Amino acid sequence: MQFDGALVKEQGVTFAIVVVKRHVLNNAIEREEAREAFSRYFPFGIPIILMAQDSRGIPTYHGRKDIVEFLASIHPSQIPWKRYTV
């Protein structure tokens, strides 16, 4: 399995971002299942932020409010994306 994500440390906060399909963000059960599934690939206890893009490439983030607000203020190219193979 492969997925795109990032491990970020910003302003003293470490968090992970994982790219998911748009429908995952729209379903509370699928969001929590995705967070649980992806959490095993990142250090224990860090917040997992889910990100989906629309057809124009505009991202939508879901997760801890302060982190989501920070991510909304930067361009996605500023995130250190990586393809994870697990």
Results as ranks from 00 to 15, higher is better:
Pro43Phe: 05
Pro43Ile: 02
Pro43Asp: 11
Phe44Trp: 01
Gly45Ser: 06
Gly45Glu: 10
Ile46Arg: 00
Pro47Val: 02
Pro47Glu: 13
Pro47Ile: 00
Ile48Trp: 01
Ile48Cys: 03
Ile48His: 02
Leu50Arg: 09
Leu50Gln: 12
Met51Leu: 11
Met51Val: 14
Met51Thr: 12
Ala52Val: 10
Ala52Ser: 15
Ala52Trp: 05
Ala52Gln: 07
Ala52Gly: 12
Ala52Leu: 04
Gln53Asp: 06
Gln53Lys: 09
Asp54Gly: 05
Asp54Tyr: 03
Ser55Phe: 13
Ser55Pro: 01
Ser55Trp: 11
Ser55Asp: 13
Arg56Ala: 15
Arg56Glu: 14
Arg56Lys: 14
Arg56Asp: 15
Gly57Leu: 07
Gly57Tyr: 11
Gly57Phe: 07
Ile58Phe: 11
Pro59Asn: 08
Thr60Leu: 04
Thr60Glu: 15
Tyr61Trp: 02
Tyr61Ile: 00
Tyr61Gln: 00
His62Glu: 14
His62Lys: 14
His62Met: 09
His62Cys: 12
Gly63Leu: 08
Gly63Tyr: 09
Arg64Glu: 14
Lys65Val: 13
Lys65Cys: 01
Lys65Tyr: 08
Lys65Ser: 14
Lys65Trp: 08
Lys65Gln: 14
Asp66Ala: 11
Asp66Ile: 04
Asp66Thr: 05
Asp66Arg: 06
Asp66Trp: 01
Asp66Val: 06
Asp66Lys: 12
Ile67Arg: 05
Ile67His: 08
Val68Gln: 00
Phe70Ala: 02
Leu71Thr: 02
Leu71Gly: 05
Leu71His: 04
Ala72Thr: 05
Ala72Asp: 15
Ala72Tyr: 03
Ala72Asn: 15
Ala72Ile: 00
Ser73Lys: 09
Ile74His: 01
Ile74Cys: 02
Ile74Pro: 02
His75Glu: 15
His75Cys: 02
Pro76Gly: 12
Pro76Asn: 08
Pro76His: 12
Pro76Leu: 13
